[in-house]
């Protein structure tokens, strides 16, 4: 048995090393000769094309905004799927949370967390950050609610239906902006060419659709991640179900 397991490990090691060797062979390391291809265009054209200061945000939400729609849809799919996996069962929600001190401290913190999350979302085109990151921070609020106050409080405060609505609205907003671009600019997700104001670079209102899309993604991701957490935590809070897996 032991020999068998060791052989297995040896085989695994061999396969990993062989694959790694081939991947290493494939890496091309040539002396740096300047950025070429579309990346060069992104670097030099962002200011002119989009008015955003964050080149990565410009790529994510303008040049390759379609990817972002897809990426947000992956999250959307996952959230929907996890909710489907854990649907149709009444789980007992726990309502006891942590101690009073923690609850008060949390209550004080919540506005600041929300503010921080909002700033990450709406400044996404100016500085590192954006809808995904801000949405994730936003979702921590509901996670903290669950942990500190218990999931029934969380469910009462921000009901699953509200989250559902926010999530879908964010997704619809993204699509709608794309469709506006299609109608006025001739192509899906057209930014400044479709008449969205480019603004002054570095100002909050700049970059055309980029801040709007950031907000849409923020709604989608924030609501989605909190649904995800809630779906998964409600099953673990059930004492009949929560025998931790032996590892």
């Amino acid at each position: 048995m032991r020999v068998h397991r060791n052989l297995q490990r040896l085989g695994a090691l061999g396969l990993s090393l062989a694959l790694g060797w081939w991947l290493w062979q494939g890496v091309t390391i040539s002396p740096f000769q300047g950025i070429t291809g579309p990346a060069a265009r992104y670097i030099h054209g962002t200011a002119r094309d989009t008015g955003a200061a964050n080149v990565v945000a410009a790529i994510l939400f303008d040049y390759r905004g379609f990817d972002t729609l897809g990426e947000a849809s992956v999250i959307y799919t996952t959230v929907c799927g996890v909710a489907l996996l854990f649907a149709k069962r009444r789980y007992r929600r726990s309502s006891h949370g942590l101690s009073f001190i923690v609850k008060r401290g949390m209550a004080l913190l919540v506005p600041f967390i929300l503010l921080y999350a909002s700033s990450i979302i709406v400044m996404g085109h100016l500085s590192p950050g954006g809808g995904f990151q801000g949405g994730a921070v936003m979702a921590t609020v509901t996670v903290l609610f669950c942990v500190i106050y218990g999931s029934s409080f969380e469910a009462a405060r921000v009901s699953p239906k509200v989250k559902e609505t926010i999530e879908s609205s964010g997704a619809l907003l993204f699509t709608a902006i794309g469709l506006i671009g299609l109608v006025t600019g001739g192509a899906f997700l057209t930014n400044s060419a479709a008449g969205f104001p480019r603004g002054m670079m570095g100002h909050l209102v700049s970059g055309g659709t980029i801040p709007l899309l950031n907000i849409a993604v923020g709604m989608k991701v924030g609501a989605g991640l909190s649904t995800l957490f809630y779906s998964m935590v409600k099953i673990l809070e059930d004492p009949t179900e929560s025998s931790p897996p032996e590892v």
């Binding site: 297995q8 085989g11 695994a12 396969l15 990993s16 062989a18 694959l19 081939w22």
Partner: peptide, 16 residues
């Protein structure tokens, strides 16, 4: 599952 994935990796190496 592990055997299956090992087979896939082996096939990949063979293709390489």
């Amino acid at each position: 599952l592990r055997a299956y994935i090992a087979l896939i990796v082996a096939a990949l190496i063979a293709i390489f």
